[in-house]
Amino acid sequence: MARDTRWQALLELLAERGRLDVEEAAAELAVSAATIRRDLDGLAEQRMLVRTRGGAVAHGVSYELPLRYKTARHASEKQRIAAAVAELVAPGEAVGLTGGTTTTEVARALAVRPDLAAGSPALTVVTNALNIAGELAVRPQFKIVVTGGVARPQSFELVGPLADGVLGAVTLDVAVLGVGAFDPVHGAAAHDESEAAVNRLLCERAERVVVAADSSKLQRRAFARICGPEPVDTLVTDTAVAPETVRRFEEAGVRVLAV
Rank of each mutant, 00 (worst) to 15 (best):
G60K: 03
R47I: 08
A213S: 04
R255P: 01
E207F: 00
V159P: 01
V57P: 03
A109M: 07
A90I: 11
A117D: 10
V211F: 03
A252D: 08
G54V: 10
T71L: 12
A133Y: 15
S194H: 13
G165Y: 12
D192I: 03
V241C: 12
A9G: 06
K143N: 14
A122E: 12
A44W: 01
A137V: 15
K70N: 04
A222F: 06
D173Q: 07
Q141S: 15
S155K: 05
A175C: 04
A213K: 02
V246M: 03
A25H: 04
E28L: 11
P140S: 12
S32L: 09
A240S: 13
R208Q: 02
L116Q: 10
V211Y: 00
G119P: 09
Y69A: 11
V232R: 01
I81T: 06
T103P: 04
V170A: 09
D192A: 13
V254D: 00
G180S: 15
I226D: 02
I132C: 04
V95E: 05
R205W: 09
A82Y: 03
V241G: 02
C227A: 15
G228C: 10
P121N: 13
V254E: 02
Y69H: 14
A118Q: 12
N199F: 07
I132F: 07
A72F: 14
G134A: 14
V57K: 06
